[in-house]
Design a protein around this nucleic acid. Structure first.
Lengths: 209, 209, 209, 209
DNA sequence: AATGAATGAGTCTTCATTCAT
DNA sequence: AATGAATGAAGACTCATTCAT
């Protein structure tokens, strides 16, 4: 019931867009957008990939923009769900919470690889209020990391002289994982999460005694 | 004679594509591609922005693909030129060379902000041999960093347990700068270079004794 | 029970199309056709305006053509009803009957303003037998005037040298009233009827001794 | 050089839209619009009728609206040109000028029959500023008649008690001619002009003493 | 080198209509 | 009688590209 996810791990609430047909459309959109880009993808091909008539798409989405919005909504929701779930189970120390949050954050780019690629690269083509909605959702997730950084800086756990850039750097380097990760490749999702937790901790200068 | 650069610092060789008209086209392409994406940009609009007739574009480029290629060639060349120039003047120690190289690498995203955005996000639409050519050029630049990392790991300067991911992370986090940097903003290019040098050193665990 | 009429004056027989739903559809058709034209109006919008499902329309009308036919039938019926009612009560002299008939004829364009606009401007899109039916109905009404003219010419009441064109002119100038008349405007329906009676009489040169 | 006119009488200035292709498009537009209406006509068919590629239309007109505008501009210009030319040669008396103006006015509906039909029935689909432009042009022509009426009423030549409605009626009844007139039919354009001059004079009650 | 006109394939979207329930 | 989902044809319009000059 969340077919946009590559490895099926159902720990998430109900998907924002229900209906099997709508899901098929979104799934095909992820394929097409990730391969040809928002503007390069044609709804005809997208419909074909979804096993749906071109015109029938319009019974589920008012237009191309809204399909993109649908994809991005799922992406934003999935990522935040992962991060918040991780934080709920994390240890007390800032360092632990930070590492766990980063682990979940990067895990999103592994588990939802394809959709995350679309979310990253096609977001720019979202317009107006749709764009604002997604920005707000994304900012909410990023805010979690900003606050963790501040907290770690305040109590001396993190010693980086550039907390703001460091936060951005952490989020960015995690995002790049979707570009090279291949399911069934050298690393398991767990390993990726562990590695990037470590890299992040180093980045914010929270290693050592 | 290198109008694609935002802050004018003429330390670079002759541009790959000469002719004022061709340069105007490339410059307009950078504007259009960065705003609307490769597929979203139309040659008509591009021609308008370049002060050129639509049909005249075809006297300088065989097609849209080649315009994109032209932009990417300049981008790749500019970035490598910066990095190699920095290395030529760098101190001897690996750490110093690494930090200087990173500084130059990130400086590219600041100085050639717009073109670097295009190079990053529209590269995917380059096809066939063109794509291979740019990949090769990019890899050559990234190879510099891979080798520096190896060297630093070998002599114990860098202590990260994940040198491969760390390298990727460094390059990635630098690339994100073009997304938020604004000329005339809070940081000068020099400061950005210094900050990211530090962040990178922390990332590869090459700080302190 | 004849909601297509603007000022409610129930002197008319049963409407050609019964059923509240069908009437709602026709009423919405009048709105849509008069605003956007037959081809410019969409059944979706029409259904919305009628408070009916799009598909349910097809339980009442076989298609768009028949909706237009329904509207035109009502229009033709309403106009003839008005004219015949007026003639039934008219004085004996040709001039009186002519003036009263014209008064009723023009009153139709006032009272059934919107539907008359549709009948006038969208009739052209009616096809085949439907078209012939409406033409016949319209001709029957116009025949009344042709005969009155002939009669008036024969007995010297009307002295226009061009009776045929004069008849057409009378009918035409009445039709134009729907374009400018506004309920609650400067003239009451009665005044309009009186004015156009006079104009018509002048036109056929039936004024004075 | 004014192919939209049915009987070729070149007494008019330069056409508002030049270029042979543009004229072919406008001519085909007149055909299509008059047969199927603005919304019922397809640009594909229109292009076919003009002997032009569909896409090439857009080298001459920005869109369908502008084609309609082009047609209406020619129509308005042609009618006013006729009326003004007639007035320039008319006798002195109000009655003479009025009759001559009406003759020219109705002649337009005969000579430019098809385009006048389009101008009358498709004008409603013109939007925004285009609409306002045409309204202004039309009003200017109608103003000529309003002023003549006023003049004739003032000096007692016209004795109708309803000058305003009479003016409208005159213009309207002339317009209806395009619906029945056929070139090569019973009446020559000159006869039509004479007949309608007489009818109009009767209508405004300006005949004999 | 430069242009304006031309083209065919393709875009997203809307349409009237039908089907299964 | 009523509905929501489905469909194929067609809509206006844009595109990258080519041609003749």
């Amino acid at each position: 019931m969340f077919p946009l996810m590559e490895n099926d791990r159902s720990f998430l609430g109900p998907p924002p867009v229900s209906s099997e047909v709508a899901q098929a459309i979104l799934q095909s959109a992820v394929n097409e957008f990730s391969e040809r880009g928002f503007h390069g993808a044609s709804l005809r091909q997208l419909a074909l990939g979804a096993g749906v008539t071109l015109s029938n798409i319009y019974n589920y989405f008012p237009g191309k923009q809204e399909i993109l919005l649908g994809v991005l909504r799922e992406a934003v929701a999935a990522q935040r769900a992962l991060v918040e779930a991780a934080l709920a189970e994390a240890e007390d120390s800032v360092a632990d919470r930070f590492v766990d949050a980063v682990g979940a954050f990067v895990r999103y780019y592994v588990v939802y690889r394809q959709i995350s690629i679309v979310a990253t690269s096609e977001f720019r083509y979202l317009e107006g209020d749709y764009r604002r909605e997604i920005v707000a959702g994304r900012d909410r997730t990023q805010g979690i990391f900003t606050r963790l950084l501040d907290e770690g800086i305040a109590d001396g756990t993190f010693r980086t002289p550039f907390p703001h850039e460091a936060t951005l750097a952490v989020l960015t380097m995690c995002g790049a994982v979707s570009a090279w990760y291949r399911p069934g490749g050298a690393l398991t999702p767990d390993e990726v999460a562990r590695h990037y937790g470590r890299l992040s901790l180093a980045l914010v200068e929270g290693l050592g005694e």
